[in-house]
Design a protein around this nucleic acid. Structure first.
Lengths: 254, 254
DNA sequence: CGAGGTCTTGAAGACGATCAACAAACGTGG
DNA sequence: CCACGTTTGTTGATCGTCTTCAAGACCTCG
């Protein structure tokens, strides 16, 4: 089980910048000391194949995880095997800050594509809350935005038609990936199966397939397996009734 | 608009204890200093009639609110007027800690019954994060549990049948009200209309009505307008596949 | 007592689920 | 590089859940 774990903890010496920094700086200014603290956190990095479980429901993790590359999701399963994904995470998302405070996981975290994940001890996060209140507020903010996204999903699943809902999800992903520089022009890479897409939308695979065709027929989106291209942002946002307010894409003191 | 606002800010000299304290103490120990800090926060208290808006979507509140009596909900509305409630709040819930960090509201907060709400300045909360890190973590925890509840709703709306979903909501409300001492035996007061119930479940009024009848027919619940009585907790939990883990009902250091 | 809101019921129809089968794409080993 | 097996995507047909529309009963409260 541990055979692929990188045992060494390193300050995430990525080629470029630390992926958490743009994600936080999108919402408020970080001081040099804060950036340095983030950069020197002791990370353990581990790759996952698509479909693998990263954190199990019911477990008591002692580390929180951050997506570095690829996509992960929160997953809940009913007795009959039906699965619902309650969130998708993109690189830069500090997915499991939740585990730091709830202690026992109410959901599992799974890889929905090949991905790379960083783990940092809860103790390090606790220290941040003790010593760097502003940075702590920014981490808190990231969990609050996460909750706002969940609310948008509730409204989508509860009240939007399958077509609107799919359009809304694509708008959301585009905006979120844009923040972390993972869009190229109007397109982005999103390597998930239609079954996984259905589990996000609360739809059956068959209906997901038909909805995707219906959306393609509107001419606003071109989804060719791993690449999603938005042909008309206005058209898509119109179908979805998309309003990005909930993503808190503004920069201000918090 | 301000005519009913209590202008004076007081340290919430309720007859009994401060409603926030049991809600937080259910999850971790509070020090005397922390309790005192909570008790001396400058509150502004205001009553609302059922159906009234408390905080508007798109607004920029400068205070956060706490439910003191009655029930409130988070609400989002689509262009065609369809409404989805994304959360229900019970007394002791620090509903709008979110506004403190997201700045612009992605949802509105409405009274779903006659209720009493306390408001505290964001600045006071900021001071807590600066000076009392442990108390700040407990407030953060309350928003994280809020998010866990939202995830349970996503899974319910996305994958559970109307009957299971309704049963699940009742189980959840019972547990949450129990924490704050608002259950009597197997029953609790929940004065909401079937239209509002439908808006929580993502169902039409008509189907909500039929689902309620179906649930009554199981003999597990007796819902007589304001009072909900659980005739068989085991039966109801079985229908709902209810597992209270997500409510973090355990007491531990955070 | 009347008026508006809430609950209830029936009937028809839409949206999405399920079942079943096949096609296409992908990955793996020979 | 091809053969093969497995996963993923696609299509048709049928079924069921939930929505919508409409109307009547009940209740509550001024």
């Amino acid at each position: 089980m541990n055979h692929k774990t990188t045992k060494t903890r390193t300050p995430l010496a990525t080629n470029g910048i630390h992926p958490l920094i743009p994600a936080l700086e999108r919402r408020d200014r970080l001081t040099a000391a804060e950036k340095q603290r983030i950069e020197t956190l002791p990370w353990r990095v581990r790759p996952y194949e698509g479909g693998r479980q990263i954190i199990a429901e019911g477990s008591r993790p002692i580390e929180s995880c951050l997506v570095l590359e690829g996509f992960t999701a929160r997953s809940q399963t009913l007795r009959d095997g039906q699965r619902q994904l309650t969130a998708v995470h993109v690189p830069g998302d500090f997915v499991d800050l939740h585990g730091f405070l709830i202690k026992v996981m109410d959901h599992s975290v799974v890889a929905i594509s090949r991905c790379k994940v960083g783990f940092v001890p809860h103790e390090s996060i606790r220290q941040i809350t003790e010593e760097m209140p502003h940075l702590a507020r920014l981490l808190w903010t990231s969990t609050i935005i996460d909750a706002a996204i969940q609310r948008a999903w509730i409204t989508s699943i509860g009240r939007r038609s399958a077509l609107m809902q799919l359009a809304h999800l694509i708008c959301e992903l585009f905006k979120r990936l844009q923040i972390v520089g993972l869009t190229t022009g109007n397109s982005f890479v999103f390597p998930v199966s239609q079954a996984e897409l259905g589990d996000m939308l609360g739809l059956s695979v068959v209906h997901t397939n038909r909805t995707l065709q219906e959306l393609r027929a509107t001419g606003t989106v071109n989804w060719q397996k791993p690449v999603v291209t938005i042909e008309s942002w206005e058209g898509l946002a119109e179908i979805a009734e998309f309003d990005p307010t909930y993503l808190s894409l503004h920069h201000e003191p918090r």
